[in-house]
Every structure is written in structure tokens, then in C-alpha cells.
Design a protein around this nucleic acid. Structure first.
Length: 122
RNA sequence: UGAGUGAACUAGAUGAUCGCGAAGGAGAAAUCCUUUGAGGAAAGUCCGAGCUCCUUAGGGCAGAAUGCUGGGUAACGCCCAGUGGAGGUAACUCUAAGGCUAGUGCCACAGAAACAAACCGCCUUUGUCGAUUGCUCUGCAAUCACAGAGGUAAGGCUGAAAAGGUGAGGUAAGAGCUCACCAGCGAUUAGGUGACUAAUCGGCUAGGUAAACCCCAUUCGGAGCAAGGUCAAAUAGGGAAGAAGAGGUAGCCCGCUUCGUUAUACUUCCGGGUUGACCGCUUGAGACUUUAGGUAACUAAAGUCCUAGAUAGAUGAUCAUCCACGACAGAACUCGGCUUACCGGUUCACUCAGGAA
RNA sequence: CGGGGCGUGGCUCAGUUUGGUAGAGCAUCGCGUUCGGGACGCGGAGGUCGCACGUUCAAAUCGUGUCGCCCCGA
């Protein structure tokens, strides 16, 4: 799983991709031909100050790290944080992200190791 | 014991698992091991510098900033020590604090008047086919009214503020006109490097506002690490038209001008290209300890140490234990300051009040 | 990193240059008009002038600091 870095890729996903809305996050998805999926994070200024933004970004990164094995390849994904994501706990955030990803058709649910891990944590 | 003032320090701790950045090492590679990894404000970007570039940055105008004195510093609008002023019982705190005696402006409403004299008054004097009264009655005197000349600034209900204040003397009426005390100004002497302070003497007066224009003194070239440089890739070193011919035109990084310097241009239109990597990037006016100088800020010497360097931007998740239950908050070229935000905790020095000995 | 602007009743803005009275439109409330409503007419209420400190006799206005928002350039 690679990171989405260039502004050109971001604008491509935003203009041609399909957004799905969750409670704490907005996930935009664009199907690509590549063999790996790429993910980018967008945390706007409205979320809070630098400390709050950094914290949300780190939590999102940790969540995607945990779900990396289950993501189906060939997609460009942008996870945007909503304003409420600062007050959410890590578990609620993880649940919300997984739900939206599953709705978008990205999560292959046959491999459920990481889900078990998160359930153990819960 | 209570209330308070000033200064300094600290910013949850320990362990386990899975992950992240950097450096070093091992390995053919995947990868593994070790070390290390945000702050007192990293913030706001309000000042000052280093560093880099702009064909040196020279003068003048304009503009901006600073503004008690002495010192510190690479520099500062910062710091230290003091002076004056304000506040507090005190410890102590605050202070844009040069010049309205260079000039100009403003001072609403009210008030006679807002700084320059006039007005109402008060007093003296002259005059009147003037009025009243008295007398020794063609006249004279007193008072009043009006007009002219002169003196005066005490009084004039206002206002934030009215040509020093209070008291006494003095005068036709008055006035620092004179005297005493207070306040202010100037000079001399003494002390201090100086701001200034104290004493004596003098003449008697200067409204307030420069965070109003302004004057005086000092300082200021510009742009900023997206500075700037190296490498690689791609594309291009162009075409057409116009105009000027030489002390012209344009450029030289806020404005104007002069000097200097560079190019032979230039202008318009058409066409083409541009978001990779690396360096800059962390050893520095660096930190700590000791000694010496200095009231202090700070400086000097010796010794020891190396302490983030990312580039979609590195510190997160989970569990356990303890307590005060964890505030404000995330480096982005680097330093010195200022300002602002902040749950609390610790230490030292000092002040006041009460009590006990 | 650099530069510029804004903050005034519930909303949109004047007033700041040159300091002394905070004003307009819409909205709101009451009355009138109408069979009723709208429109219209009359009258009223509503503002710590973002915040703090200072200069001044006096501050929305002047100065400093600070908070928030918006825009532009590299």
C-alpha cells in the first residue's frame, strides 16, 4: 500500500472519484489500473490547530496500516477528516472508516484477521 | 498562621506488544541489530542579526523607526543599573519620559474672553439749554444719567482648563506694586561620568495639546532558504511587424533625482518550454562546569560534550500499575529578544497583619 | 515567507480623514388603513462600535498590544 503524494493525483481523485460520507470521515475513491492501492489523507484547517490535525492524521495512518492487508488493489483513495473527528475516540474512528470502506467496496471481508484484532481491542 | 511581592525550576512516571523519521553496522537481497528523535513558549511573525543573491550599497529629497541618563551586546524597538513622575501601609510595580520659550493648527457646548485684545464693570477727569436735592439762588456744591479722554485687570455665575495660590499691607480704583509661605522659571556654587539633586540669589510669569502637523538628535540599500547553487530530462536558441539613429532608449529590486555602471537595444504579436533529484540542512554570536573581573546585564580563560533535520512532512494504537488525573501547545534555514496562551507543582528571598516566647 | 483589507442594532452598510450628537435601509413591535392579508402611513424598542491598556477635559475616531475573518503574490 502506497501513499498518495502529488497534488495532481489528489485533484484527479477529487474531480473524477466518488465520495462516500461517514460520521467522522469522507472517503473519495477512484479506480485505477495499478496493482497496488494508494491512499492519501486530507485534514483541513477547520479540524483544529496543528496538534489536533497531526493527531487525527496519525490515527488515520495507524488505522490504514492495520487494514492494509484487506484493501483490494487498484484504487486511489483519499480519506478526508471531518470536524467531529477530533472528539472521536480511536475505536469509533476505526469503526467508521471500516464501515465506509466496506460500503465503497474496497474491503475484502474474507480475510478477517485484522478485524479480529480490532474486536479484541474493543 | 493569614494575606501578598519578586525570582528560579518543572511540564506525569515506569514496563510490555505492534508501527514511524534519521544515522551507523551486517547481508546478494528481502530484511535484521544498535543509537537517537519537538517546546518554554517550537506559536504570533512584532523587532534585531547571521547566511544567500541582486553589476557595491555614493550623495540629496521623500519615507519609516527610535526618543530621560550611563552601560551591555554581533545588533536591536532588547537587557542591566540609576534619575524624574504615578500607584501601593510595605515588599515592590508601572512609565512613547526630547522640544508648545522655532513656527502653524485645534480647544465642542457653555462663557465677556480659550492666549490676544476687546466687552461688562471699577476709578479719576472734562463737558452738558440734562435730571434731582441743598445753600448765602443770573451762581455754587453734591449725587445720578449721557458723551469724550485716561488709568486698571481685582470682580464678571461658565468650563476639563481663565496671564501663579493663600494671607497681610498698599492705592483714586487697582495690580507681585510690596512682604511672608508655597508652586514654577533662570543664574551661581557644591555633589554626580550623566539624567539630576541640594543650598543661595535673582527678576516676577510661562494655559493645555506634539500617541496634532512639525522641529531637533540618531539609525535605515533591496529581496528573502519557494534565497541561492549543482545534476538529469524535455523544449527553445526563433519568426513577423513597427520605430529610433547615438550623448538616445532601457535596466541596475518600494518612490523621485543626481552620480556611476551595463546592454545595443527595445516594443508589440505569433510560436515553444516549466512543479524531478541533490546540496543549502545543522558545530553554533552552541551548551554545561569551574575560576577571574563587574552592583548587574555581561565579558574573559580553562575543561568537558555533540543534543531532531522531515519534504503529503517523522512520536501513534493497545494493555498494566501509581499519583496531583496531566494545561497551553508540534521544529521546517539558524540565532538574540519581545508579545501572547497555560491545569498545576517545587524552592529561595522579602513585606504587612495577628498570636506566642 | 511577504503584502493588503475588514470587525459598528438580528442582517447589509455609513460615520474614523479633521476626536465632542452613534445614523440609514431591511427585519422586529404597537397603532391606523382593509371584510382579512400584503403594500402604505404614523410611532417605538433594540448598539460593551471585536477585546485590553494608554494619550486627552473628552475616544467608534488617536497610539500600542491582542483576537477573529477574508484576499493577494512567490
Amino acid at each position: 500500500m502506497e501513499r498518495l503524494k502529488r497534488p495532481r493525483d489528489f485533484s484527479a481523485v477529487y474531480t473524477r472519484g466518488k465520495p462516500n460520507f461517514g460520521k467522522f470521515v469522507v472517503v473519495s475513491v477512484l479506480p485505477m489500473d495499478g496493482k497496488v492501492s494508494r491512499v492519501g489523507f486530507a485534514v483541513g484547517k477547520k479540524v483544529g490547530n496543528a496538534v489536533a490535525r497531526n493527531k487525527v492524521k496519525r490515527r488515520l495512518r495507524a488505522i490504514m496500516q492495520g487494514q492494509a492487508g484487506r484493501i483490494s488493489p487498484g484504487f486511489d483513495v483519499i480519506i478526508g477528516a471531518k470536524q467531529k473527528s477530533v472528539t472521536a475516540s480511536f475505536r469509533d474512528l476505526e469503526e467508521d472508516v471500516c464501515r465506509v470502506l466496506k460500503y465503497s467496496g474496497l474491503l475484502t471481508s474474507n480475510r478477517s484477521e485484522s478485524t479480529r484484532v480490532s474486536e479484541e481491542h474493543a
